[in-house]
């Protein structure tokens, strides 16, 4: 059943520009580095930081809020497909479970974000190779950091999807999303327990894997809470 639901969800997002945004997001992150390296290449060389190591750091510095903004936009789009057209009553009157519907929305979003993350890895790799940075290409680190960021942001995905699906007025989840973006922008100052800090992969122990584990565990918890709340609501 979940397979069928996901396929219909992918049908419904046609022509909404969602795929375009999925590609634009990672492209934008790398484009910022293009500008960055285009303008300051000499400075990087002079400082002796024209290497893959610093390049990956630069990419990863922007990824959290690109990702959070992406999550805010995609979840709101996903919710608006049914919210705007009052189609929930049609969907829920089909022989499907409500948790199935919720899981399908979540999975569809997760797939889109994984595609984004893969593209980010590819684009970063491509531009890095074009720059001819010092040192060997750290394929594994690149993949690791891109996906770490994704896993660490799963709690935000769960929260935004929940709020977006139950809000009639999409201004609410989007305003919440703006808070999230600002929090992730200030990640450095935040205490470790705030979910918006996690995508920065920063913590007092300097162990990114902690954020990944927290992301997966808390992400699952928030997902469950959102799903249970969605299930017990009447469909208008």
């Amino acid at each position: 059943m979940i397979g069928k639901l996901i396929r219909t969800d992918f049908m419904k997002i046609r022509r909404k520009g969602i795929w375009f945004l999925t590609v634009l997001g990672p492209f934008g992150v790398v484009a910022l580095q293009m500008v960055n390296y285009g303008l300051r290449k000499d400075w990087f060389i002079q400082q002796d930081i024209y290497s893959w190591f610093y390049y990956i750091r630069n990419v990863i510095a922007f990824t959290p809020f690109a990702l959070i903004l992406g999550i805010v936009i995609l979840t709101s789009f996903m919710a608006s497909i049914e919210n705007e057209t009052n189609a929930w009553k049609q969907v829920i009157a089909l022989p499907v479970t409500k948790w199935g519907v919720y899981l399908s929305k979540y999975t569809t979003l997760a797939i889109l974000l994984v595609v984004s993350t893969c593209l980010l890895t590819l684009f970063s790799l491509g531009f890095g190779m074009f720059l001819g940075l010092d040192g060997g290409i750290p394929y594994l680190d690149l993949i690791k950091y891109c996906f770490y960021t994704f896993f660490a942001s799963l709690p935000v995905l769960g929260l935004q999807l929940w709020v977006a699906l139950v809000s009639k007025n999409q201004g609410i989840p989007i305003t919440l999303g703006i808070f999230g973006v600002i929090l992730s922008y200030m990640a450095y100052f935040l205490p470790d327990w705030l979910i918006w800090k996690w995508p920065s992969l920063d913590n007092q122990w300097d162990e990114p894997i902690i954020n990944v584990c927290l992301g997966l565990a808390v992400g699952l918890a928030i997902y469950l809470v959102g799903m249970i709340d969605f299930m017990r609501r009447d469909v208008k």
């Binding site: 909404k16 520009g17 945004l21 634009l24 934008g28 910022l32 500008v35 960055n36 303008l39 922007f62 690109a66 903004l69 805010v72 936009i73 995609l74 709101s76 789009f77 608006s80 705007e84 999409q170 201004g171 989007i174």
Partner: peptide
């Protein structure tokens, strides 16, 4: 655009480059 998400995306697309622009 009817949907918040669509007009918000346009907003984001123009707002993010500011981070670089203010340094230039």
């Amino acid at each position: 655009f009817k949907s918040f998400a669509a007009s918000f995306s346009v907003n984001v697309i123009f707002t993010l480059p500011t981070i670089l622009a203010i340094n230039s």
